[in-house]
Computed example of a mutant assay.
Amino acid sequence: MTQAAVESTKQKQEEYLLKVRGLKKYFDISEGLLKRKKQYLRAVDGVDFFVKEGETLGIVGESGCGKSTTGNLIMQLLEKTDGEIVFDGVDLSTLPKEELRKKRAEIQMIFQDPYSSLNPRMRVFDIIAEPLLTHRVAKGKELEGRVYELMDVVGLDRTYAKRYPHEFSGGQRQRIGIARAIALKPKLVICDEPVSALDVSIQSQILNLMAKLQKEFNLTFIFIAHGLPAVKHISDRIAVMYLGKIVEITTKDNLFEQPLHPYTEGLLSAVPIPDPNLRDKKNRIIIEGDLPSPANPPSGCRFHPRCPYAQHTCKTDVPELKEVKPEHYVACHFPLEDGHGVLYEN
């Protein structure tokens, strides 16, 4: 490799706010008093991806694929089994407890359920103020000003500050959660299905608010969801997970226009299209069978028992996540050719 290429690669890597390499999380599910035969549920099994500063990476997949566990591992809410989580140039697992506590202020989370993620005994003011007090960022009049400023930013009336969470709608509660998440001005916000518990009309408002805040505060998002329309609306790049592994990752335009993995093709095919004229033209691809157990995943490619294009190699060899087109990575022995893509309404 030439010196220029080395410098280019180094410069590109320095742009990454987050680098995840070989990330694994196994849960011990061994049975019996002595647990002589070890059994593990492989929730996340060798995940690699990066996130650039200021972008939104969407992570999609069926329930149980490991996407939320991945978010919890990055947040250090769960202890990893193996791999690296390098945030802002630092491997989080190597930090002493106090240093990790300081670093975690730069990584915040918006939770899925706005009903259970807020303390019902705390007023709105105290909920938003809590991270500022915990990390000793502000107090007194400065704290009061910061809280009211955050309420303004997320579209909450200041008169709501003394109310309790049960007095608000789902969308308003999620705005409270968002205000709490951005209070410390984090670099990375992990959004764990933040709109799935909301009505469709409210979902668009919250997504638009998040996009606005991203520009205003230079935020980087990891947006975890199972609904493809929401992910397409807010993401720059999208990673598709299946049974603990990433099977495809690329820009949202590449993914929706030309999916290269059969599983992605099936996911896109399942998205409802309101226009009956387009609906009739859509090539429906049904993913047969049930999601295998992560405690006993299939050999080779984990999707091969449900894949309509599977061949013998798929049953024996594990496919690597490779760049087959510019900025388009896929873990498939036989990536889909042109013409296999599904019709999706833009």
Rank of each mutant, 00 (worst) to 15 (best):
Leu343Glu: 05
Lys281Met: 13
Ile238Leu: 03
Asn283Glu: 14
Glu320Val: 11
Ser235Glu: 09
Ala197Ser: 14
Pro274Asp: 11
Pro298Asn: 08
Lys67Val: 13
Glu323Arg: 14
Pro262Glu: 05
Leu291Arg: 01
Ser235Asp: 08
Lys103Ala: 13
Glu31Ile: 01
Val330Cys: 10
Ile127Tyr: 00
Ile249Gly: 02
Phe223His: 08
Leu100Thr: 09
Lys315Gln: 15
Pro272Lys: 10
Gln3Met: 13
Asn72Phe: 13
Lys215Leu: 12
Val153Trp: 05
His312Val: 13
Pro165Ala: 04
Ile246Phe: 12
Ile107Arg: 00
Ala5Leu: 12
Gly177Asp: 03
Glu142Gln: 15
Asn296Asp: 14
Asp82Val: 10
Arg302Phe: 14
Ile286Gln: 11
Gly171Ile: 00
Leu209Met: 07
Asp45Met: 08
Thr70Gln: 08
Ser204Gly: 00
Phe168Leu: 11
Glu55Thr: 15
Lys252Met: 11
Val189Asn: 00
Phe217Gln: 04
Lys102Leu: 13
Ala179Trp: 01
Lys315Met: 15
Ser63Lys: 14
Ile234Val: 12
Leu78Cys: 04
Tyr164Trp: 05
Tyr26Trp: 15
Lys80Thr: 10
Pro274Gln: 10
Glu248Asn: 11
Asn254Ser: 14
Lys215Asn: 14
Lys141Thr: 10
Leu336Val: 06
Ala43Thr: 05
Gln13Met: 13
Leu184Phe: 10
Ile190Thr: 01
Leu78Met: 12
Pro114Ile: 04
Leu213Val: 06
Pro292Val: 08
Glu55Asn: 13
Lys322Asp: 15
Asp82Cys: 03
Ile234Gln: 01
Lys322Phe: 12
Pro194Met: 12
Leu133Phe: 01
